[in-house]
């Protein structure tokens, strides 16, 4: 069999922490060994097989089925392989992942992609708060890879982003790209208040409405060359950049309350 399939028998009564669900780890394990992997159900440590039917072994292609909205840390720390969540995923999905491909076919809960270091993370639905963000108190958020959400995201997407690309097909909640150090955040729709607050370097590409902080200054209207490279890359990965494929951008430099070497590129059709 070329795939390991996990099917949740019934939703756990409290959150189930399952960071053991990693395709790179499954590649070397038998079906029985996978079923014996430890997960935390509340205060108890139990075997993965108590909650999931396990089918398949020795494969780095993994599919998780069932209502796993209360299953946390799926694919956390994964370094390779492919993980597909056939539905909505719980918190911390893909946190700290550094390689491979993780696809959530439904919605993703808070902290998805937290501190992501590499690989490709795709959410077909919406993502809740702190998508590809930073842990509280951490100086770094995402440090590499590509992550995109076809729908909308909650507050603090891409907080303290240091490297990598995040793209959002819908709108973003408050404080998008807060305290970014570098990297690129693309939002096709509207951005909530406080976008780019504390921006040191890096780029926020805003396709929709945006309430700019007063600490950003207008520079010019143009179409930076790298935007077309970036959009071509996103399109290759399956992200539709929509109307931003043409038009120009108003460049606002900031955040001048901080280092001020970042930019918000506000799309305009003209």
């Amino acid at each position: 069999m070329s795939e390991v399939r996990l099917t949740l028998r019934q939703a756990p009564s409290v959150a189930l922490e399952a960071p053991c669900v990693r395709p790179d780890a499954f590649a070397t394990l038998s079906e029985a060994a996978i079923a014996r992997l430890p997960v935390e159900h509340g205060r108890e440590v139990v075997a993965l097989g108590e909650f999931f039917d396990v089918r398949g072994e020795h494969a780095d292609q993994v599919r998780v089925e069932g209502d796993v909205r209360r299953v946390k840390r799926l694919g956390a720390g994964m370094i390779g392989g492919s993980l597909i969540v056939a539905g909505s995923a719980g918190r911390h999905t893909g946190a700290g992942m550094s390689g491979g491909s993780l696809v959530v076919e439904g919605d993703a809960d808070d902290w998805t992609g937290l501190g992501m270091r590499g690989g490709r993370l795709v959410v077909h639905g919406n993502a809740a708060a702190a998508f590809c963000g930073a842990a509280p108190g951490s100086s770094r958020g995402m440090t590499g890879g590509l992550a995109f959400v076809r729908g909308s995201v909650g507050v603090r997407v891409g907080e303290r982003l240091r490297r990598g690309v995040i793209a959002v097909g819908g709108s973003a909640g408050a404080y998008a790209g807060a305290h970014m150090v570098a990297g690129t955040l693309v939002v096709r729709g509207a951005l909530g208040p406080g976008a780019g607050i504390g921006l040191k370097r890096g780029s926020i590409v805003a396709g929709g409405a945006l309430e700019l902080l007063p600490t950003f200054r207008y520079a010019c209207r143009y179409r930076p060359g790298y935007v077309d490279l970036l959009f071509a890359s996103l399109e290759r990965h399956g992200f539709d950049v929509g109307a931003m494929a043409a038009g120009a951008f108003d460049r606002f430099g900031g955040d001048h309350a901080d280092l001020g070497r970042g930019e918000i590129l506000k799309w305009t059709a003209s």
Binding site: T184, R201, Y222, G225, Y226, S233
Partner: peptide, 22 residues
């Protein structure tokens, strides 16, 4: 100047009077 890494390749953005040299 600033740089962007896209698909593992680094590009430099050099500001010039016209706009940017990539």
């Amino acid at each position: 100047q600033s740089s962007k890494v896209i698909d593992g390749r680094r590009f430099w953005r050099v500001p010039v009077m016209e706009g940017e040299f990539l």
